[in-house]
Design a protein around this nucleic acid. Structure first.
Lengths: 220, 220
DNA sequence: TGGTTCAATTGGTTCAGATTGGTTCATGGG
DNA sequence: CCCATGAACCAATCTGAACCAATTGAACCA
């Protein structure tokens, strides 16, 4: 399945869950979806073609694209993919403790690899670059805990993080200023690791993730 | 194996782990890889040829090169054997926070299900029965946190717990007296959940798991 | 009230130019 | 002599923009 189609289906599922999209309701115009998903219209249309062939939507020139009745079943029956809120909850549960553990048992090589990721994030100016280094940094810290089972669980988490919803949400809430802020928090965490200070590492990671969560989901 | 191919595989593994590359996702163009790996295109193409022959990638003129589904298995299929120490480390990292979360958001139905597991454990006299109820209790508490991703990660943990090493170790260190002790600790945790007391639930779970860890692995 | 007109909107189509994997070939080093 | 290299070229595909046709809704008039 194409990535764009996946994104579209995710969008519909999300909308169906929060009531934005109901059977028969009109979904955004192709040109609006272009901006929203940041992909060319041809890709949007290709995805809509298959959705139409699958009977999920029906299109009318001059009117728009609409969800069919059948779509609800396909949407409801779909396995609910993980929401960003769930992901952040799990990260907040896991990563602070991981940071504390890493502060205790990280090797010099681990710290160097972590340092590279930190530097990479500080040097990136665009969203894509920073996001990539950010993921690598958090993974490198987990890896420094030297626990294979932990890495398996981290991969489950990262799989969820690769879902389209997560990407669009992050892109929407990202900004140069926020990235700078994140980088400072990253720096604090890495310094705590270098100082072999588990409490500071744990506290720093918790502060960082709470900040990310607030920015991503809105302060509660 | 060629060095270029090794570099490419490393790139893919890393990308698959931090979520950059997923099954079906497009990887950099050959010309981009030339710059990234600083090797001639002929070498890139030679490496991609073998990757394609191995079924790791599929190529389309004018579209690009894409990861296949099979590629993921090759990448994350590494069944790292997990030691009981690793398992207990992860449990200590995760479950206290889960208990605190469950204390906040558990429904009455959750608490009833948890209560059944607790009662089952209290009524079991033999190792097998207690062990089964114990696993169910911990899982029920996690389930009360109402986070699907968390349950996925718990399943990873339980998979590791199903390894033979774990079973023999637990059987060797189990005794009626210890089971009674665990049951008391379980009771404290469940009472904290019923009282909606996150701090007590977290502390109780931590104490319990530290106790289990000490019994299992020997006091450090 | 009822009908007409017209500009804006929206899905559908076309096309030139850029991208991308595949191929060929002159060059030069081993 | 062999073969890797890099550049040019090829064919399939994608992309962005313009344009087309169906529809809508507001403004306007009798």
């Amino acid at each position: 399945m194409e990535t764009v189609e996946r994104s579209l289906r995710a969008l519909l599922t999300e909308g169906a869950q929060d009531g934005t999209f109901r059977p028969g309701s009109k979904l955004p115009t192709e040109r609006a979806l272009v901006e929203r998903l940041a992909v060319p219209r041809s890709a949007i249309r290709r995805a809509l073609d298959t959705l139409e062939r699958d009977g999920v939507v029906i299109r009318h020139v001059g009117r728009g694209t609409f969800l069919t009745e059948a779509a609800v079943q396909q949407v409801d029956g779909a396995p609910a993919d993980t929401s960003p809120a769930e992901i952040m909850q799990v990260r907040l549960l896991l990563e602070p403790g991981v940071a504390a553990l890493a502060a205790r048992v990280a090797t010099q090589a681990d710290l160097e690899r972590i340092g590279e990721c930190l530097a990479g994030g500080g040097a990136s100016e665009d969203f894509e670059g920073f996001e990539s280094w950010d993921a690598r940094l958090h993974r490198a810290i987990a890896s420094a805990a030297h626990n294979g089972l932990l890495m398996n669980m981290f991969d489950v988490l990262n799989t969820a993080r690769a879902l389209p919803v997560w990407g669009t949400l992050k892109r929407r809430t990202s900004s140069p200023e926020r990235r700078r802020c994140y980088h400072e928090e990253h720096t604090e965490i890495v310094e705590a690791l270098r100082d072999r200070d588990p409490e500071s590492a744990e506290a720093g990671m918790r502060r960082h993730l709470e900040n990310v969560s607030d920015n991503l989901l809105g302060r509660h």
